[in-house]
Amino acid sequence: MGQLIRSTSLQLIIGLSVMLCAGLCRADIFVVTNQDNPVQQLTTKEVRKVFLGRLHLYPGTEHEPVAIDQSQTSDLYRTFYEKIIGISLPKLKRYRAYYLFSGKGKIPSEVTSQQAVVDAVLRSTYAIGYLKNPGKNTLQQVKVLYRSPLED
């Protein structure tokens, strides 16, 4: 009987651990901007248009989004564009060249780290970037416009 109780308890602990980890370890992508930006949230489509350069003004404003990209070599860059934007990286490169040099607008500027994205967002009212599981302190400094869970 004692062995049965120990076994059941062990299964319970493992189950709870898995559930807890699913909550705490879940990878989310946050699209963030400066707290002074009047925009409150963006839809998936609007996020897609911002980072593909097709949203020239924030909805309901006369302000241009200043998009910030993570490093092209980072996993987050790949994940963001493939999972959120829905475009493969080879296609994105061709699209960016096409978009940039056909006079339609500018492409996001690239920074080298997650902290650099935060710094850029803190510096510019209309900057917009994406972060993976930012810490509580970071989330207190920026405004979250969009959040999406990722399946790693």
């Binding site: 490169k93 061709r94 060249a97 096409y98 040099f101 056909s102 006079g103 339609k104």
Partner: peptide, 13 residues
């Protein structure tokens, strides 16, 4: 389609 980037070889296959 590629009139705007005719000179930009990287933009087409």
């Amino acid at each position: 389609i590629y009139s705007g980037t005719r000179d930009v070889g990287y933009s087409y296959p």
